[in-house]
Amino acid sequence: MKRLLVTNFAKIGPFIGLIVIMIILGFLSDNFFTLDNILNLLRQVSVNALIAFGMTFVILTAGIDLSVGSILALGSALTAGMLSSGMDPIFAVFIGLIIGLALGAVNGLIITKGKVAPFIATLATMTVFRGVTLVYTDGKPITGLSDSFAFEMIGRGYVFGIPFPVILMLGVFLILYFVLRKTVFGRQVYAVGGNEEASTLSGIRADRVKIWVYSLTGMLSVLAGIILTSRLNSAQPTAGSMYELDAIAAVVIGGTSLMGGRGRIVGTLVGALIIGVLDNGLNLLNVSSFYQQIVKGGVILLAVLLDRRSK
């Protein structure tokens, strides 16, 4: 009985945390529970959540990807470049996503074929990709992108009153949830993270699984970047810096183990919401951004400590 409670706590703990934080913020601020604010909050969350979904896959294989923010920036800049040169926006976005996939695959190849630890490999590519972005943009934002409806829609549109990025995020979530829970690939992701040698000896091509996982994360990072680009109607060379930290935090708060093999993408969604709600609520309360960092860090720590307890 006690064990049942404990295991269930590990699963719903973050969710309870989210509810508690929301109730507190609701009491402290009249504006928190307004429809506008909630929709605005969800739109803000969608960028981090998309990256964090990919990060969940990476962390499940016992890896880490520090380069997501740089991939976001590079992918956005290249997409913006294509747009400003007059390319069809849908085609440009498509190419942008493929670029993200390819940049992620570079990470995966360095890690598997070069046998470099994920932390080091992506630390290096984080710097390289950021540098390439700065070279490509000459350090200046790319503006005047496109006034096509389709491109504006991605970051600024609404469907039935719901911001399009939120719908995008939920759609991606449902697909990835299915992939992790119901497909052979999802099972392989968990297995490779749980015990790579045993997985290989069971016939799983662990290298391929890892390359795919980093590619997926690269693609989702660029998708998040395109949302930002569309919203601002410009690509910033410094976009996405430090985003890797919020993404990793969302995954960890959601209960996924950094050792790999254990975790759930639902947890990551809740983790991203917790971070988003905190950011939003503390802004509403006019808490200085200095204090905000302290609160956010404290929450991450608390989540991890509670998670430890329940194991």
């Binding site: 099972r187 968990y190 297995a191 749980g194 015990n195 040698e197 045993a198 997985s199 000896l201 069971s202 016939g203 799983i204 093999g261 254990r262």
Partner: peptide, 15 residues
């Protein structure tokens, strides 16, 4: 080399 210890019997055999 034989088992994923954190995983269930079901998941291990399915590998």
């Amino acid at each position: 080399k034989g088992l994923v210890l954190n995983a269930s019997i079901r998941e291990n055999i399915s590998l």
